[in-house]
Design a protein around this nucleic acid. Structure first.
Lengths: 236, 236
DNA sequence: CCGATAGTTTGCGATAGCGCAAAACGGGAC
DNA sequence: GTCCCGTTTTGCGCTATCGCAAACTATCGG
């Protein structure tokens, strides 16, 4: 099996406090795989057999209701873990994961988790940390959905994406993976129509530049003004 | 210091896989305290000095936005932990905890956590489990807020409360702590006015019986019908 | 180069739920 | 018993946002 270069992942939060030798041992249990754009990595409801670490690309985690409506739970950026069903004791994946770009992931069999945690307790601590952080972010999202109107929510969502996965350009920050109006709608609890109207508005104000699955927050004003539009949010 | 009876807490998920002696040691690090109805246990933004286990009573965790709007994050039932800021590496509480009834809690100093986790790794694993479960519930809540309308959300919220903290009566299930229309509104992302209208409607249909801070899901139909209202809303 | 496909824009009517305001109600304090 | 205060109910106009429909436009395969 092709070895994974430890130096590429050693600095990740997941492996904080793990010695190089231990890391090596951990990585030996994983295999890597490549998922082409738009392919599913796992489906909601399927038996959870693995957990994942994204090395390259971007992954969308989406949750579907019994009636077929869907939300985007989050976008996974390189270095982040996903599909942690086992950590919470679930036997099935609670969401679907789709590669939105050609992506490379590390895959551990779920059966390796108990053993790894026993040998390297910091794995559990680190995972607890990231899951806890995500819980907080969820609460913030609920707060926003409860108290802000759509335009503010979209502004905030884009700012977060820019922060997480923004590529700096000379005239602004581009969200570094393909994302549609529909996706943004599913992140903010609205419809693609409304998102389209909002972005059109911002575009005509010179705040953003956007096209098919492409969004750029323009630098002089875009970022500042959008941030002000939620005259409330603190540091993300 | 008054000793806590281990037999009262031994069965809790938090202590799964912990030997009685270990439990004893863990409990020795805690103190207990009583909070009267409507008193604050900790405030959002305050430095996190402790984490808590509710022994008796009920606690409301609420998060306030910078603009002063508030949501109810959850109600804590006996046996559940709360104020786990340390587990996620936060130094301040991300929400406010208020006793909605006279309540008794166990309190550990946050400084004890690293040591406890090191000695008893299952604590970390168990905490990861509960935090993960809460994360899932949050996602479900977001999904609901995005896709359902207010009446469905209120129905679902009440059913969850009944399940978590319902007291069985001969004519139905009563939510076993004081809860106002306003509280329900803050759990479901609406206003107390709308909640009031919805409950009035249900009351006149005989589905619920409600009064000042008191809600009873009536047995023959209340529970079933509210559950169905959730399943899918076909054309009314 | 062209057609097909998926994503985007825009108009317009419909409406769920908000927000304000005022009145009714219930429970506890004294 | 009576007063007071927090909670609940209800009416009514308003509007943000949805939902549908149709036109438009990049992008990709061939």
């Amino acid at each position: 099996m092709a070895k994974v270069d430890t130096s590429l992942v050693a600095h990740l939060p997941l492996f904080a406090g793990v010695t190089p030798e231990a890391l090596d041992e951990i990585l030996r249990e994983a295999r890597s795989a490549r998922y082409p754009k738009n392919s599913a990595i796992f489906e909601q409801g399927a038996g959870a057999q693995s957990f994942f670490l994204l090395l390259h690309g971007h992954v969308r985690a989406a949750k579907t209701s019994p009636t077929g409506e869907q939300i985007v739970v989050r976008y996974v950026a390189p270095g982040e873990t996903f599909g942690l069903a086992m950590a919470i004791g679930a036997t099935r994946y609670p969401a679907t994961a789709i590669a939105v770009e050609d992506s490379v992931v590390l895959i551990w069999p779920i059966s390796a988790w108990p053993r790894l945690v026993e040998r390297f307790p910091s794995l559990a601590a680190n995972t607890l940390q990231t899951v806890g952080t995500r819980l907080q972010e969820s609460h913030t999202r609920i707060l926003e959905m409860s108290t802000q109107q759509v335009e503010q929510r979209v502004a905030h969502a884009l700012l977060r994406l820019a922060k997480q996965s923004g590529k700096k350009l000379d005239h602004g920050i581009e969200i570094d993976f393909p994302i549609s109006r529909q996706d943004i709608a599913q992140m903010t609890g609205t419809t693609l129509h409304t998102v389209s109207r909002i972005l059109s508005g911002w575009e005509s104000q010179g705040l953003v530049e956007s096209g098919r699955q492409r969004i750029i927050l323009r630098d002089p004003h875009g970022i500042v003004v959008l941030a002000e539009r939620n005259a409330d949010s603190g540091p993300a």
